[in-house]
């Protein structure tokens, strides 16, 4: 009995296309990827894309226009499983960065003035789960090769990845790096999802948090620790917000108030 191949679509909304590129960059495995699954749509890799029913849709990028709302809703309707891949799709990305006391419409106007957009109407950047239900999240900026291949292969077998979030510090210690935070540097390792293998710290650069926040991260403690190390509170909050997307804003705002 031969099983039908899993139908997969890979889509890009607003982002740098780094996640789709990473999938293409799995050179050694590319033949296996294309022979194991029926890749119905993958604009970066092929023409003749079909927008039909899907088993799995991998979506990168955030939603920043009204047309993308329609697009993401259409994908959701066609796909049994929707996976947000990369930082933009999972939390909104840098374009969805939290900015206190700002009104998006006003910011937009200050950049574009009264320019009329005829193609589609721009809106404030949001992660895809602001509009549709998402089944799985694959964070990363971009996603990691091992992480993607592991996820992809498990999903082909019908098995979602085991949810086991760990911060960058875990890989960092396994690689026997010196803790930059302890040395007084601005490192966001403890708040950031691992998967990159602590690549920056391996090269003696602090973690900037590009994989996005990890579940259960202790923002309050890290904030006060950085403050004690001499960093300016506003600077800390800005840096915390950089890659944290739209969801974390209130948390950052409440850090100082959050008291037991």
């Amino acid at each position: 009995m031969k099983k039908d191949k899993v139908k997969i679509g890979i889509y890009e909304l607003t982002g740098c296309a780094g996640d789709a590129l990473l999938i293409l960059d799995c050179e050694k495995e590319l033949i296996d990827i294309f022979s194991a699954a029926d890749i119905q749509s993958f604009a970066m890799a092929k023409s003749d894309n079909i927008d039909g029913p899907l088993d799995i849709a991998l979506v990168e990028g955030s939603v920043t226009t009204e047309r993308e709302i329609e697009e993401i809703k259409d994908i959701r309707q066609r796909a049994k499983i929707v996976v947000a891949i990369g930082l933009c799709a999972t939390v909104g990305g840098i374009q969805g960065r939290y900015k206190p006391h700002s009104v998006w419409e006003a910011d937009y106007k200050s950049v574009y003035g009264e320019t009329e957009m005829t193609h589609t109407k721009p809106i404030q950047s949001q992660p895809i789960d602001a509009y549709i239900e998402v089944d799985y999240y694959l964070p990363g900026c971009p996603i990691g090769k091992d992480q993607f291949l592991n996820f992809f292969t498990r999903m082909l077998g019908g098995n979602p990845p085991e949810k086991y979030p760990q911060p960058v510090c875990v890989s960092c210690k396994h690689n026997e790096n010196d803790c930059l935070l302890t040395k007084g540097e601005f490192c966001l390792g403890p708040l950031t999802a691992d998967g990159c293998g602590a690549i920056c710290i391996n090269h003696n650069l602090p973690c900037v948090g590009c994989w996005g926040p990890i579940e259960g991260a202790n923002y309050t403690s890290e904030y006060h620790l950085l403050k004690e190390k001499g960093f300016d509170p506003e600077f800390i909050k800005k840096k915390l917000a950089n890659f944290s997307g739209t969801k974390i804003g209130k948390l950052i705002e409440s850090i100082e108030k959050e008291r037991p």
């Binding site: 292969t153 498990r154 077998g157 019908g158 098995n159 085991e162």
Partner: peptide, 10 residues
Amino acid sequence: FVMISVLGAG
């Protein structure tokens, strides 16, 4: 009890 494994799942 026993430990049961399914290939690919765990």
